[in-house]
């Protein structure tokens, strides 16, 4: 496959770009073997060499696990590939002459800090409200003291695979964090270690989700479609059951 010439429309915000606008850039001579972020690196190299401020975007692991990268590509969080992050997207997915729009996550709970960088601190606050098991270091019983059926462990792992990137929120028309919270509530509700606190956890996390400015879930399933780890919306259903159970039984107050 030959190298490509592309046009980018990139959201720039802050500094001389003020409150933000789309800015066009040429991405010339792009190799199909580049990753999407490497393509942006190359554009930035040219800007830096010319003394212009480069496009600011988040990334770290560049292999789909840290959840740092967070670009909306042509209107879709993480771009066109299903089950993958934008750092795993490769340029062979595009054609010579394409125009590509690149924007940050858009959600009230994730304010833009600069260009394509948003603040996802709300996710940390959600975890701090109950997304853990209260066990101090050094007080744990032997790892094999409680056998856990393999299928249960696997189901917990499916939910635990969430990378906390926030694409689910960015894709949802209500900007709901239900998939993120559902995944954590499910993981810990499936495992015996999470049982003592399951009611309190569901209550606290669901209540805080509303307070932080995330919207309600109206079952559009857009979140599942963009989730790079393909976390199932069944976790949202489980979160609701956990929450209702807590309300009905009065547990975890």
């Amino acid at each position: 496959m030959a190298n490509m010439n592309l046009t980018l429309q990139v959201w720039r915000q802050g500094g001389s770009f003020g409150d933000g606008r789309m800015v066009p850039y040429d991405a010339a001579d792009v190799s199909p073997d580049m990753s999407f972020l490497e393509m942006l690196d190359v554009v930035n190299e040219r800007l830096i060499a010319a003394g212009e401020p480069p496009i600011v975007f988040d990334s770290d692991c560049r292999e789909g696990i840290c959840g740092m990268c967070s670009l909306v590509v042509n209107g879709v969080p993480h771009g066109p590939d299903r089950g993958s992050t934008v750092c795993q997207l490769h340029m062979r997915r595009f054609k010579d002459g394409d125009t590509i729009t690149i924007e940050p996550w858009r959600a009230a709970a994730f304010p833009v800090r600069r260009d394509l960088v948003v603040d996802r601190g709300a996710f940390d606050r959600l975890i701090a409200s109950g997304g853990y098991v209260s066990v101090n270091t050094g007080s744990a019983p032997d790892g094999n003291a409680i056998p856990i059926p393999k299928d249960l462990a696997e189901a917990a792992m499916d939910a635990a695979a969430c990378i906390g990137c926030g694409a689910c929120v960015a894709a949802c028309k209500n900007a709901s964090a239900s998939l993120f919270v559902g995944a954590k509530v499910s993981q810990l509700a499936l495992l015996p270690q999470g049982h003592p606190e399951r009611a309190a956890r569901a209550r606290a996390m669901v209540a805080l989700m509303d307070n932080l400015g995330f919207g309600n879930c109206s079952n559009e399933a857009e979140c599942e479609a963009v989730c790079p780890k393909e976390i199932s919306i069944a976790t949202i259903a489980r979160m609701r059951r956990e929450y209702i159970r807590a309300l009905v039984t009065g547990a975890g107050r």
């Binding site: 744990a140 462990a153 696997e154 270690q193």
Partner: peptide
Amino acid sequence: IDQCVAQGVPFARE
């Protein structure tokens, strides 16, 4: 390992 299991780390199982 004990600590991580108690935290809910979903290690692979037999």
